[in-house]
């Protein structure tokens, strides 16, 4: 028998999920809560739970914050999201917050039960669609190795003028810009290349052959 605690802010859904899971012979819903506060109170009162199923959209700080808290408070209890959000970055954050599973509400009942069984067997589970979304989110992140930095046209222009030895005022006059804008571009470039001053910037740029 698996004891499950359900957290969802939507009363109708809470009832719906509860009645459906209760229909599965080896599952037992021991309690439900509408938000983080109620969840913590009930668990404090000793409601039994082997698995907590959480919604992402909870009032206040949301499901991810609650998941983090629960991971610390009840480390032995399995945690899984049962939610309708399937944005890749959200799935990623949810898993990072310590969840053992991520189940979409749009799947069929069989999959929910399968996921619960797998999580209780010590494995993890992410619904297929959510998994795909997470992978494409991961792919958009820049690789850890320094990616080639691209310069905008204006930045190239200014960099060239810096190399030519012009002062900010001279550059401003030449490019019909304010010195403030020139400085802004200069600082942006320092930030981009992680350089502390213009001298270091020139060194890096010439090494990377960005102006040729």
């Amino acid at each position: 028998m698996i004891n499950i605690f359900l957290v969802d802010d939507h009363p109708i859904l809470l009832e719906g999920i509860k009645s459906m899971l209760n229909g599965i012979s080896h599952l037992n819903i021991t309690g439900t809560a509408r938000d983080a506060k109620e969840t913590l109170e009930k668990l404090n009162d000793g409601v039994a739970a082997d698995l907590i199923l959480l919604d992402l959209n909870l009032p206040g700080d949301g499901g991810i914050e609650l998941c983090k808290q629960l991971r610390k408070l009840v480390p032995s209890v399995k945690l899984a999201f049962l939610t309708s959000s399937n944005d890749g970055f959200i799935v990623l954050k949810a898993i990072q917050s310590g969840a053992n599973g991520y189940i979409l509400k749009s799947v069929e009942m069989d999959e929910v039960v399968y996921a619960i069984n797998r999580i209780m067997a010590g494995q993890s589970f992410i619904s297929k669609e959510a998994n795909l979304a997470m992978i494409s989110a991961l792919q958009t992140l820049p690789p850890t190795a320094k990616e080639k930095v691209a310069l905008t046209r204006r930045e190239k222009e200014i960099l060239q003028l810096i190399l030519d030895g012009l002062t900010s005022q001279e550059m401003a006059d030449k490019l019909f810009l304010s010195t403030h804008t020139i400085d802004s571009h200069r600082k942006n470039m320092l930030q981009k290349f992680g350089a502390h001053n213009t001298h270091a910037l020139i060194k890096i740029v010439s090494k990377m052959k960005l102006l040729e």
Partner: peptide, 20 residues
């Protein structure tokens, strides 16, 4: 998203139970 989406998901869950 939260309301309609979740309700539709429940409808789907219910239909899958029915099918079973």
């Amino acid at each position: 998203h939260d309301s309609l989406g979740s309700l539709l998901s429940i409808v789907k869950l219910r239909l899958s139970v029915l099918k079973k």
